[in-house]
């Protein structure tokens, strides 16, 4: 009982000491300063430890915050890069449209009859009944309606030879899916060269002749896309629209590509 009474008094004294700030009383200050001097190394160690731990905690919180912000920024950068590539595509198309608007293609043409076909049956060339005398030159584009048939590769006095879209030796610039490629002729299918693996060309996509000076003539459509071509490129087969042997008359556009 006595013990409990003693500690209860000590409890009251402690409360009083805390509320009245007893340690700052002049009578007790020598004792307090003695205790402080005694505990000085401990107090210094304590202060240093507290500061270091606080620094560590702040650094950790800062790093976690930075990591979160970094992740968010990386996401934003990815989204923005996508937007930039979209805008680049739009810009290119607009520039092309601008070029077409400023200088509308007015092409002179000559109507020519077909006099001979490729005897091999591969339709690689055809002969026209117009030649040098009619002002035809090598490189002129040959079309039927809005379909590209080929390019004049040899001109004689009264006739000329057309290298058709079925010929392995025909290489022209083409556009498909908003991107430019090289169209290589071939029998029974032509192909688009250097189509990157990430390009999204689909079966049935139309392939146009690419020229700023000529109207967009159709070459054909994508027949098949094989993802496993070379390491970086896909193999894309194109079925040309031009049916050479059904055509009796063609238009020779008097302009080179």
């Amino acid at each position: 009982m006595k013990e409990r009474f003693f500690y209860f008094s000590l409890f009251l004294l402690s409360v009083f000491a805390y509320l009245s700030n007893l340690s700052s009383y002049p009578l007790l200050s020598p004792l307090v300063s003695f205790i402080n001097r005694l505990l000085m190394p401990v107090m210094e160690l304590k202060a240093q430890t507290t500061r270091r731990v606080q620094d560590l905690v702040n650094t950790y919180v800062f790093l976690v915050d930075t990591q979160k912000r970094n992740r968010k920024l990386v996401e934003e950068v990815n989204a923005l890069s996508l937007k930039v590539s979209e805008l680049e595509g739009c810009k290119r198309e607009l520039l092309q449209l601008k070029g077409l608007m400023e200088d509308p293609p007015t092409v002179e043409y000559t109507l020519a009859g077909v006099v001979a076909y490729d005897p091999s049956g591969r339709d690689e060339f055809m002969l026209l009944d117009k030649g040098k005398r009619d002002g035809l030159e090598e490189g002129f584009v040959v079309a039927h309606r809005n379909v590209f048939l080929g390019i004049i590769d040899q001109v004689y006095a009264g006739t000329s030879r057309v290298r058709t879209v079925w010929s392995d030796n025909l290489h022209v610039s083409a556009t498909a899916g908003g991107k430019n490629y090289i169209y290589k002729g071939g029998f029974p299918k032509g192909s688009l060269l250097h189509v990157a693996q990430e390009d999204e060309l689909k079966k049935g996509e139309k392939v146009f002749l690419r020229s700023l000076k000529l109207p967009p003539l159709e070459i054909g459509e994508v027949y098949e896309v094989y993802p496993s071509g070379e390491q970086f490129f896909k193999r894309v087969e194109v079925k040309p629209y031009g049916d050479v042997r059904r055509v009796d008359f063609v238009l020779v556009l008097r302009r080179r590509l």
Binding site: Y7, L10, F11, L13, S14, V15, A17, Y18, N21, L22
Partner: peptide, 9 residues
């Protein structure tokens, strides 16, 4: 001084 001591008692 007194805060923890009284609390613990």
């Amino acid at each position: 001084l007194g805060w923890h001591a009284s609390g613990k008692l």
